[in-house]
Amino acid sequence: MMLTGLLCGALLGFVMQRGRFCLTGGFRDMYIAKDNRMFYALLIAIAVQSVGVYLLIHFDVITYATGSFPWLATMIGSFLFGIGIVFAGGCATGTWYRAGEGLLGSWIALIGYMFMSAVMRTGILAPMNDSLKGVTTTTNSIADSTGISVWVWISLLVVIVLFFVQKELRKPKLFIPTLKRKRTGIGYVLFEKRWHPFFTAILVGIIAIIAWPLSVATGRMAGLGITTPSANILQFLVINDLSYLNWGVFLVLGILLGSFLAAKASHEFRFRMPDAKTGITSFVGGNIMGFGASLAGGCSIGNGLVATAMMTWQGWIALLFIILGTWTASYFVFMRPKGNTQAVPDDTTVIV
């Protein structure tokens, strides 16, 4: 049953690589380029997952408890996570799938991310992590807090998403002339054609739904998740404890595999070595990302995609603070300094 995690992760990695589903770039573009398409795509994935998962709950396929809301840790951690993903050059999932493309800077960021996640969970920073998470409210469910059915909130989300989607799709498209003959076929669609972010988001939402029963079947009561499984990989390698190898570990390894297969098939795989300054920036960003995600109880996937779909305060407030953190880092890195020479991870050097 654990191998279903590998298959689910491979499918997610393939879809994200081909669809360039990058939340870091999406959040950054909201501020710098005033381009909200990737944010709208995230909302689509959230809405699709929310409808699907709550149908599974309604028909008793899975059970779910929102628990309490560690509001202080969520806000601080999410804000720091948003800062970290800018310096790392990608969020947790984006770093995994970009590593599958051969970006060595993403591998460097992953090392920092896994290391700090492990330190926060079972290392020297665990007491501080647990202490901050101890500041909670009793109710995490938006529906329970407001006394309004969760289906009302889901319906409201769907209406909002449909409004933004139709608004975005009605914008005039740029005409790009080409001399190439128009190609068709499954190979072209899978490996050559540029995927629309909204189409990618629908697929991500469907995969997120499938993840729930597959994960629950192994005793892991959760859907998609990146931070804890990433920490578990490092902890398994260090102390050789098989208890760390669960469905989530196979999920993140599957993301790497799926991205690699997609990149190879589309001729996008190549080793790219960052310069020393960018490598250091990636490592620092990965550590900040691991610190923030562990403190917040989730990353842009665990909180920003899954917990939001479950209609929890933790998910939506975490998403807000991740965006604010991304904007803050983007301001200082890209906007404020004139003639800024700050290195950011772009992994442009190719190893031949």
Score class of each variant (00 low, 15 high):
330 S>C: 08
223 G>H: 02
351 I>T: 03
133 K>M: 12
185 G>M: 13
351 I>M: 07
66 T>A: 15
175 F>K: 07
143 A>N: 08
76 I>D: 06
44 I>S: 03
93 T>L: 15
147 G>K: 07
339 G>Y: 05
94 G>E: 05
326 T>E: 08
322 I>G: 07
322 I>L: 15
229 P>T: 12
69 F>E: 00
94 G>V: 05
260 F>N: 13
128 M>F: 15
230 S>W: 15
79 F>Q: 13
102 G>W: 05
122 T>D: 12
237 L>Y: 07
70 P>I: 10
173 K>W: 00
53 V>A: 08
70 P>F: 10
75 M>W: 06
306 V>C: 05
299 C>R: 13
155 S>M: 09
30 M>L: 03
19 G>V: 07
64 Y>G: 02
309 A>H: 09
300 S>M: 09
120 M>V: 06
303 N>I: 10
159 V>L: 14
7 L>I: 14
15 V>I: 14
73 A>D: 06
119 V>T: 04
75 M>L: 05
118 A>C: 01
89 G>S: 08
190 L>E: 09
198 F>R: 12
245 L>K: 14
161 V>Y: 03
228 T>P: 08
64 Y>Q: 02
316 W>G: 04
115 F>T: 15
54 Y>N: 12
238 V>K: 15
311 M>L: 14
129 N>A: 12
315 G>R: 13
128 M>Q: 00
124 I>V: 05
331 Y>F: 14
325 G>N: 09
94 G>F: 02
321 F>G: 06
97 Y>K: 04
258 G>A: 02
197 P>K: 10
173 K>N: 01
168 E>K: 03
196 H>S: 13
323 I>W: 15
232 N>Q: 11
39 F>H: 07
178 T>R: 04
183 R>I: 10
273 M>P: 00
